[in-house]
């Protein structure tokens, strides 16, 4: 449990703790776009792992809804950056997020049955909570372009919904 939360927390600490590898003290729009997109891809990958592993109908349905929503939001993000002629820029926060997700994925790969289900759903709660925190306190306030800001705000509402959905599923699994 402690170890599980530590990896995701470490990446987000980098995101929130002012330990920025950015030129200024805030991320730029191309960096924000990259971070938001990466955060979505990570949850899509996690969902695919859950769909392949879990035998629990509620967990699989939850994972399918994560897959569907994050792909939809990321498609909107891609359409927007194309329209704005912005090229998403890789950065240390995106890299740290991806690395933490990879660690988590291999941790989860060792689990099966209800152990897997519980660990996956708990991580979904923690992950969405942390991404939402980053969106609220850093990414949305830093975004310069109004359309990017608006998409991030809608994304925040979607992910807050996911967090509550994950919390409900976690309660059901207890």
């Amino acid at each position: 449990m402690t170890i599980r939360l530590t990896t995701a927390a470490a990446a987000i600490a980098l995101l929130l703790g002012g330990n920025w590898a950015f030129a200024g003290d805030k991320p730029t729009d191309p960096q924000i776009a990259h971070i938001a997109y990466t955060a979505g891809v990570i949850d899509v990958e996690a969902a695919k792992q859950a769909i392949a592993t879990s035998k629990n109908k509620t967990v699989v349905e939850f994972a399918e809804s994560m897959l569907r929503d994050h792909e939809s939001v990321n498609k909107q993000a891609l359409d927007l950056v194309k329209k704005l002629n912005v090229t998403p820029e890789d950065n240390d926060t995106s890299k740290a997020l991806s690395q933490a997700a990879e660690t988590k994925r291999s941790e989860l790969a060792k689990l099966t049955g209800t152990d897997f289900d519980k660990a996956y759903v708990e991580n979904e709660v923690a992950y969405h909570k942390q991404v939402n925190g980053a969106l609220e306190t850093l990414l949305i306030p830093s975004a310069q372009n109004a359309e990017l800001k608006s998409l991030l705000e809608t994304g925040l509402k979607v992910f807050q919904g996911h967090q509550q959905h994950a919390e409900h599923v976690a309660t059901e699994l207890k």
């Binding site: 929503d69 807050q160 919904g161 509550q164 959905h165 409900h168």
Partner: peptide, 8 residues
């Protein structure tokens, strides 16, 4: 509510 987004 919305089942997928219970904040709705």
């Amino acid at each position: 509510v919305c089942r997928y987004h219970p904040n709705m």
